[in-house]
């Protein structure tokens, strides 16, 4: 009994209220939600078809979602492996720093990666039509395209359109509409 009193005492002393976890509100782990966003970005982006470097995949009807070897959520990613987006099959590719990004339609850089490595990834992605997405802080400032932002309760995203356009990518109007903020024109 003293134990429970102790626990409750601790809780009370801070005056913390238990948040209402109502069953009606959709809720999800951050990992699952992040992957759901990545899947949607694949659905609502357009890659340059003329680009010779990238034709192979589009002809093969594959959209490659590349993740770094430091991306932790394997099970969540595997859940969208093989799903269909824009009539193409989504494939998860784990790649390492230094490997070519030619085959990657989307590159996800988790905040678990160090900033110095993320910069290096972005540098490597510069000359390929690869949509870069990250949940790290200040991702758009260092040249990223889509930043996933946890506002404390929900996951939002912001877009750096200048970067998107310079890579010859197009984002659907719907995507731009739902984005919390858009930089560049």
């Amino acid at each position: 009994m003293p134990f429970w009193v102790g626990v409750l005492g601790l809780t009370l002393s801070l005056g913390i209220t238990i948040p209402k976890t109502t069953l009606a509100n959709p809720s999800s782990s951050e990992q699952t939600l992040t992957v759901a966003f990545l899947y949607n970005f694949l659905k609502f982006s357009e890659w340059p078809t003329q680009n010779t470097q990238n034709t192979q995949n589009t002809q093969n009807n594959i959209l490659n979602l590349c993740v770094t070897d430091n991306t932790a959520f394997e099970a969540e990613l595997n859940a969208i492996d093989g799903r269909i987006a824009q009539n193409k099959i989504v494939r998860i590719n784990r790649i390492e720093l230094g490997e070519s990004l030619k085959e990657c339609q989307l590159l996800f850089l988790p905040r678990e990666e160090k900033p110095i490595r993320i910069r290096e990834w972005l540098k490597n992605a510069k000359n390929t039509p690869t949509l870069t997405v990250s949940n790290m802080d200040n991702f758009l400032d260092i040249g990223g395209m889509i930043a996933l932002i946890d506002d404390g309760t929900r996951l939002q995203f912001e877009i750096n359109l200048t970067q998107v356009k310079s890579a010859d990518l197009k984002l659907s109007a719907q995507l731009l509409q739902i984005a919390r903020a858009i930089r560049g024109k």
Partner: peptide
């Protein structure tokens, strides 16, 4: 649970609540 989430339209996805914060995990 996850499957239905992947099929949610984008405008609903931004309203899904995030549970279990992992922001404070150490690398």
């Amino acid at each position: 649970v996850a499957d239905t989430l992947y099929d949610l339209p984008l405008d609903q996805l931004v309203n899904v609540e995030v549970v279990s914060a992992s922001r404070f995990k150490q690398k």
